[in-house]
């Protein structure tokens, strides 16, 4: 018997056909989850409407009279629903928010603070990261989301992915949502996110390999560290297995 056959045989031979789960509990939790999703759907719609209302003003302010017309590609808005499982810890950090919801009629919220130039270029456009204001119903401590966008020469900015917290505080210490390329943007989006705290290094792990992120402090709040992974070292969209932050002394935060 080859090793593979032995492995297959062992995986089947150790099955326990008598395994019983508490289906009443499964259905009870499932109903609760369904309700939370409905509420989240309603909340997301509210947020999208709010953003649309704000951005009309922002778009004028951002572009200015005579500025180039908005880019053809509409800026998507990603609104993460509340954690949907019984294991909130697993949901929290390394999982990206769901694929962006693309809205064709939505201008761009005005960035908060300075754009961070990643150094990555897509033709003539540069990959940039920036915070934008968001509001999540019932979550007063969530007011910012981190966007990955492209800026063409001359200024027009196109948002590809926006990630934001959907509960708790967007300034709580530690990692927040991670943004992964979802294949929906014309250019691959390098994996990105932010950490709150005195981090000097952000190190991701994938397939047992360590990858250093590039980091920059947010101009608006120096406690916030924006990070992104060079696409040469981490393929956009590839999920991280782990991530840590270290301070200037190399201590894990």
């Amino acid at each position: 018997m080859s090793e593979l056959e032995r492995l297959r045989h062992a995986m089947r031979a150790t099955e326990r056909p008598d395994a019983v789960l508490d289906l009443a509990s499964v259905m009870r939790e499932g109903r609760r989850l369904r309700t939370r999703r409905r509420v989240a759907g309603a909340g997301a719609a509210t947020l999208a409407t709010g953003l649309a209302a704000v951005v009309v003003v922002v778009a004028v302010g951002a572009s200015g009279p005579g500025a180039p017309a908005p880019t053809e590609r509409p800026p998507p808005v990603a609104v993460a629903p509340p954690s949907v499982g019984v294991s909130p810890m697993a949901e929290k950090s390394l999982k990206s928010t769901p694929p962006p919801t693309v809205r064709n009629d939505e201008p761009l919220p005005k960035p908060l603070g300075q754009l961070v130039d990643s150094g990555v270029r897509h033709g003539t456009e540069r990959r940039v990261y920036y915070f934008v204001p968001v509001s999540v119903p019932g979550e007063p401590k969530v007011s910012i989301g981190l966007a990955a966008g492209r800026q063409a020469p001359g200024g027009p900015l196109t948002t590809d992915i926006l990630v934001n917290d959907v509960e708790g505080s967007d300034r709580s210490a530690g990692f927040h949502q991670i943004g992964y390329d979802e294949g929906s943007a014309p250019a691959p989006v390098p994996t990105f996110g932010y950490f709150v705290g005195p981090a000097k290094r952000i190190i991701g792990t994938v397939d047992g390999r360590q990858v250093d992120a590039r980091v920059a402090r947010w101009s608006f709040d120096k406690q916030v560290v924006i990070f992104w992974f060079d696409p040469v070292h981490l393929t956009p969209g590839e999920r991280l297995d782990g991530i840590v932050a270290r301070d200037g002394g190399g201590r894990r935060l």
Binding site: E29, G30, V84, V86, S87
Partner: peptide, 16 residues
């Protein structure tokens, strides 16, 4: 394992 299977079934039921 039981927790994970239960979680998977909860989410499956929620989307049933």
């Amino acid at each position: 394992a039981e927790d994970a299977a239960q979680t998977a079934l909860v989410r499956t039921y929620a989307s049933w």
